[in-house]
Amino acid sequence: MSYILRRLLSIALTLVLISMITFGVTNILPGDVAMMVLGTQSNPTALAGLRQTLGLNDPLALQYWRWVVGMLTGHFGNSLMFKVPIGPLLLQKMTASALIVVMSMALALACAIPLGVWSAVHRNRWQDSTAASAALLGISLPDFFWGIVMILIFARTLGWLPSSGFTDPSVNFIAALQHALLPACALGLGLMAHLTRITRSTMTGILNQEFIRVARAKGLDERTVIWRYALANAIGPVMTVAGLQVGYLFGSIIVIESLFNYTGMGWVTYQALLNRDIPLIETSVFVIATVVMLVNFLVDLLYLAVDPRLRQSR
C-alpha cells in the first residue's frame, strides 16, 4: 500500500517537473501568441493591448501559475488555430489516438507472446531463427514504411480498408475501427517485433530455471509447464517493457497519424507545432506525458498483482 502511495507521490512530482519543462520550452520558442491571434499585419497598439489582456507581460512564473491552476480547474484555454476550447478538443483527439494505441498494443501482444514463447521453446532451431529474422525485419524498418506498404496492399490493391481519414467511435464504431486498423497495424508491427524478442529472452531464462524441471518431474504435461508455470513468470517483465513502449507509441503516432490523415493526438500536436499554437502545444505535450505515466503506473500495479514477491517487499 505504501508502495502505491509512494508511486503516486513520485508521479505527481514528475508531472510538476514536466509541466515546468513544457511551459518553459514552449515559451522560449519563437512566436507570439498575440500576433498569432491578430495576424502579422495587425497594428502595434492592438497587439500591445491584447498582450496586456492575455497577461503576456506578466512574469513567467505568474503565467505558469495561471496555466497550472487553469488545468487543475479544467480550464485549458482556447486553441489559437482551431479557435475552440482545448479541453474538449484534446479529449476527442486523445480518444481517437487511444483507439489506435490500444489496438496496436493488443495486436502486438497477441502475436508477440505466442511467437516469443514458441521461439523460446524451439530455441536455436529453425523456428527460432525464422522468428528472429522476422523480428529483425520488423524492427529495422521504420513504422511509416510499413504504413505505406499496408496502404498499398490493403487499401489500394485489395480495397478492404480505407487508406485515410477518421471516424468518431461514438458516431459509427465499425467505421472507426476500420479507419483505425491500418495505422494500428503499422504501429504494432515494430512493437510486436520488439516484444517478441523480449518474450523470447525472458522465457528462455525461465525455462532454464529449476522450478520448470520440478514441474516436469511432477509429470505435468508440456502445455501446462510452458503456458502456466513458465508464462506466469514472464508476464510481468513483458508487460513492463510493453508499458515503456507506450511512450514510444505516442511519439510514433505523430508520423503515422499524419500519414493516414487520422486526426488524433499526434496529428493535432503536429498541427499545433506547425502553426505555433502555443497553448495547444503546451497542453497536448503535458497530456501525452500524463497518459504515458499513468499507463506505466497501471503496468506496475499489474506486475504487483502477478508477482507475490513484490507485494511483500514493497
Binding site: 522450478f211 508455470y229 513468470n233 502477478v306 508477482d307 514477491r309
Partner: peptide, 8 residues
Amino acid sequence: MTSLNPVF
C-alpha cells in the same frame, strides 16, 4: 531456493 515456482 529455485525449485518452487515463485508466483504460485
